[in-house]
Design a protein around this nucleic acid. Structure first.
Lengths: 196, 196
DNA sequence: TTCCTTAACTAGACGGTGTCAAGTTAGAGC
DNA sequence: GCTCTAACTTGACACCGTCTAGTTAAGGAA
């Protein structure tokens, strides 16, 4: 995937790194093709030879972010074998990523549907593979809770929805989302379900 | 809130409507101050007298969207008094909005934190009020499930997270998010929780 | 009526954005 | 040494949000 050609050592990589740095510093709005180019020490039109447009660069950044995302979840579940504790640990990794790489997290889950057609095919392929890998991390932990002889599809959907919603609405905000104070911790809300 | 001054009848309102139309037609990317102005039949700098920058116009659009959002949830729960059915009906309203006004829905829940300071105070106030009204719609339905003599805060957080995550990840996508096929319906995944 | 004030809007410019077209430069293969 | 080609530069274009200055229309006061 890396280019490793002349002039600049590996501009493809440098542009992705620059983009991530820009986003982590100033939010998704701070990302621009020209700023990435400048940060990589290259003219404003140079990125065009590696990414066919901003959309592809953004997609590459998202793909890279999915990699970090998956690694964070893996690090949290490492060494935990008891199924329920393992699943919760993965969820905590999920939330940790949404807090520590907030800009990336929000950027990853922005609307992409109408832009997918503009993404360079190999980049789109990498994006989908890494996205699937992240999903699998959670799905495999859900397998232990599948109905006997059945699939864990419903469980995956439930857990993924719950942790993602929590991350979006509560975990990755300083406040000001709800008129109430700090929301309860993720692990604390799980038992609430038995009353529904 | 409306201006109702000369030249144009009510440009403030016209710009919001134009913005919503643009977003519903071409997604969040299609929104631009200049296009809103053109669509309202006015010069490109005219909006500056009603909104102090794009951010305020966007905030006004989000505030308006929250109104539609709340009305959709209310319409779905109308006439249902049994607590659990009522709560589920509200969730279905939530999901219906995310599907029928997909662009608005995604736009509403985009990162706004670092832009809040740029929003015109009365518009910010309206935004927060309408956002709180939407939250209350769900919170009131959760009250029936509060622990005896306690608060329903945990329940609210659980339900809001779950339905929001489901809407973001599954309800408002044509596909291509997960490698698997169509996800199970929202009501179907709820019983899954007892196996966790 | 006429004058004046003020808000609404226009016209034009600025820097910044992504993208395209053309020219240059450096390395690889012959 | 020559050519070929990919990497990169330069410059232009249209579009974006925003700022400044000028115009226009409505309402109040004489």
């Amino acid at each position: 995937m890396t280019k490793q050609k002349r002039h600049h050592g590996d501009l493809y990589e440098a542009l992705i790194v620059a983009g991530i740095e820009l986003m982590e510093a100033g939010g998704p709005e701070a990302l621009s093709l020209r700023k990435c180019a400048a940060r990589a020490g290259v003219s404003h039109a140079a990125p065009a030879h590696h990414f066919n447009g901003v959309v592809s660069l953004k997609a590459a950044i998202v793909a890279r972010s999915y990699g970090i995302f998956t690694k964070t979840m893996q690090a949290h579940r490492e060494g935990i074998s008891e199924p329920r504790a393992r699943l919760i640990a993965i969820c905590e990794g999920y939330l940790a990523f949404s807090r520590e790489h907030n800009a990336l997290f929000r950027f990853m889950f922005q609307p992409f549907a109408d832009e997918a057609a503009q993404i360079n095919p190999p980049i789109l392929q990498e994006l989908e593979a890494r996205s699937a890998a992240a999903y699998d991390e959670l799905a495999q932990a859900c397998a232990a809770f599948a109905p006997v002889g059945g699939q864990a599809r419903g469980t995956e959907t439930l857990v993924w929805s719950l942790v993602h919603g929590y991350a979006m609405l509560f975990a990755s905000r300083e406040g000001s989302e709800t008129p109430h104070g700090r929301p309860p911790d993720f692990a604390q809300i799980l038992p609430e379900f038995q009353r529904l």
